Amino acid sequence: MSADLKPGTRAPAFSVRTTAGTRRLKDFAGGHLVLYFYPKDDTPGCTQEAIDFSAHTDAFRKAGATVLGISRDTLAKHEKFAAKHNLTVLLGTDENGEISGSYGTWEEKSMYGRTYMGMARRTFLIGPDGKILRVWPKVKVKGHAEDVLAALAK
């Protein structure tokens, strides 16, 4: 995670193509933004995370928050993923890695002795003023959506 991205710092500006059109960070001003980064559509953990956030869409809305998930999958893949699982969260595509780079979520990983670059599962809660309120640096999917909701209630 970028050392700059901790609570109290300004969230990096972005423009992202989503399943509901292009969105910019400034479009969420005045409300909270739950910005979560995930590795890949239609994988078990990523699917469960998106379903969990979608299941709480009304609660997030009542708390004044929008949920936006970002991966490097294409917009077409996001649209199929959302339709297949009846997702109600926004999904954004970061194909060129600009957004994940500025949020420090594109990082070196290793599995079975092999190193590669991949998306870290990380969530940022951004306040109405565009400043980061909280960071979840190593997300465990189970209970995560509820944890983010609880943080919004504080």
Rank of each mutant, 00 (worst) to 15 (best):
V139D: 13
G97P: 00
V89G: 08
Y38F: 12
P12A: 07
S71F: 10
Y112K: 13
N96M: 00
M111G: 02
I132D: 08
A150V: 12
K62L: 08
D147C: 12
G118K: 14
F81Y: 00
K138C: 00
R23W: 02
E49C: 05
P44E: 02
D52I: 12
A50L: 07
R17A: 15
I132L: 14
G64S: 00
D27W: 04
G118M: 08
L149V: 12
T93G: 14
S54P: 10
V34K: 13
T47N: 04
Y116C: 06
K109H: 03
L87A: 02
T22S: 03
V139H: 11
Y103V: 00
A63C: 08
H144D: 01
T66D: 13
D73G: 05
G8W: 03
L35V: 11
T105V: 15
I51T: 00
A151H: 08
V67M: 12
K62Q: 14
L75M: 08
T43L: 10
T74H: 01
S100V: 14
A82P: 02
C46A: 11
N96W: 02
T57S: 14
A151D: 11
A3Y: 13
Y112Q: 13
T43Q: 05
E146C: 04
D58F: 04
L35P: 11
A83F: 01
R17H: 11
A150G: 10
